[in-house]
Amino acid sequence: MWKHIAANVLTLAVVAIACLAALIGLGQSRWSAPGPLEEAVFFEVPRGASMRSVSDRLAEAGIVSNGSIFRIGASYTERYDDLKFGTYEIPPGASMPEVLEIVTAGGPSVFPYTVTYVIRSQGPEIRVRERLPGQEEVVEIATFAPGDAVPEDYTALMERGVPITWRVSVAPGLTSWEVIEGLKGAEFLIGEVAAVPPEGALAPDTYEVARGSEVGELVQRMRVAQERILADAWAARAPGLPLESPEEALILASIVEKETGVPEERRRVAAVFTNRLEQGMRLQTDPTVIYGITDGQGPLGRGIRASELREATPYNTYVIDGLPPTPIANPGPEAIRAALDPEETAFLFFVADGTGGHAFAETLAEHNANVAEWRAIEAAREATGSD
């Protein structure tokens, strides 16, 4: 009798083990299989949310096939407590491990709406864009300047309280005064900047910020970023440059930034000034003269007078030898790298060529011919009234 009972128990145990193995196999299959999501969606993980609530919402949204299996998988991979709050884009067909990676990796939030506050030489501009999940193209909702009538679509977004990515974009070549003045119109930031940072100390870039964050914190991020960019470029600089410090490199980079907006020209323009420094020639660059007149507080708004070109000021490179005492703007990383790795060329002169770029020359005779061509282009434009 006992043998019969033992045999039955053993049979039941084998069946139970087989069933358990089947369940585990099914769970593993569903865990690693492509998910049921047919189209990309945005999914929010609220601050302080639990794995249980998130897994249930993932299942309700049709992102994962089973919330319980998702939780078991998260526990088995030791990521149960690793949720990072934010809004994420989930691609179609994402498996549970892929979804888990997205919501626990802590990458930047991807909101459908983006408000970018652009600081540029023409004045600040607010750009409101929408991106549908799974698409790279963005749709323009509104573009306006601070102080203008606020578009209704922008007001509606604010009233709905939808998640928004807030950004501040600083164009290269602005002075520190222009950047700080521009930030004063960013109503989504709070606080003030006690003093204008040193010229050249702010890294032009696009910065993601939180609505209601301190403007001083953003400015500090810009300063830290510029310090890092300059240090890295200085460490990788070309040998034999006529620059004695990173500060001098920043000055030269600011001149390069102001002289050309053509990426392909930066290293060539840097080479012209490097060659002039090596030969003891004056830099003779108009942007430094303008900075000396305006102190970096906005554009000159007119042509440079002949008397201003003759006036002895620390920034008049037609009069002084070498570099001016400080940068004349905040250069971008490309201009900094160009100043520290100039093109190998004998060019000593350049002038506008009528296409947005410049004509370069090794000799004064060649340069004078290029200047004559440029003046002819200017005269023709004035005659036709074109820009």
Rank of each mutant, 00 (worst) to 15 (best):
E344T: 14
D321S: 11
E362D: 12
Q122A: 15
V110S: 13
V319A: 02
G25W: 08
A59P: 02
V45S: 03
I255D: 04
G93A: 07
A379I: 12
A7I: 12
V193R: 06
T114N: 05
E39S: 13
I304K: 01
A142P: 00
P92W: 00
E257G: 08
G296N: 01
G385D: 09
V219P: 01
V168H: 02
I102N: 03
E192M: 08
E257H: 02
R52K: 10
R120W: 03
G73R: 07
E125Q: 10
V15R: 02
S53G: 01
L174H: 06
T384W: 06
E44D: 09
G200L: 08
D153S: 15
T384Q: 15
S109Q: 04
E366T: 09
T384Y: 09
G86M: 03
D205V: 07
W31C: 05
G185C: 08
E60A: 14
G292D: 07
E259K: 01
E344R: 14
I377L: 14
L23Y: 10
M281T: 11
G134V: 00
A359L: 14
E38T: 15
A13R: 06
E140N: 12
T363E: 13
L132D: 10
R276A: 12
H358M: 12
T313N: 06
S65D: 12
G48P: 02
D82M: 10
A233P: 04
V193F: 05
V45L: 08
I164R: 08
R120T: 06
R131T: 07
R267F: 05
D153Y: 06
R237E: 08
V115G: 04
G200T: 13
P172K: 01
R223E: 14
I255Y: 05
A142C: 03
A22S: 13
A365Y: 04
I251T: 13
A312D: 15
P92C: 02
R127K: 12
E264N: 08
V54M: 09
V99F: 13
A49Y: 02
W166E: 06
T363H: 09
G191A: 08
K84D: 05
S109W: 02
T175I: 09
M222D: 07
G134M: 02
G185W: 01
L340R: 10
E265M: 08
A201G: 07
R47E: 15
A74Q: 07
V128E: 01
E214T: 05
E214H: 06
Y76W: 15
R282L: 09
L309G: 03
E199P: 00
G322Y: 01
W234V: 10
P327Y: 10
A105P: 09
L364S: 12
G332T: 06
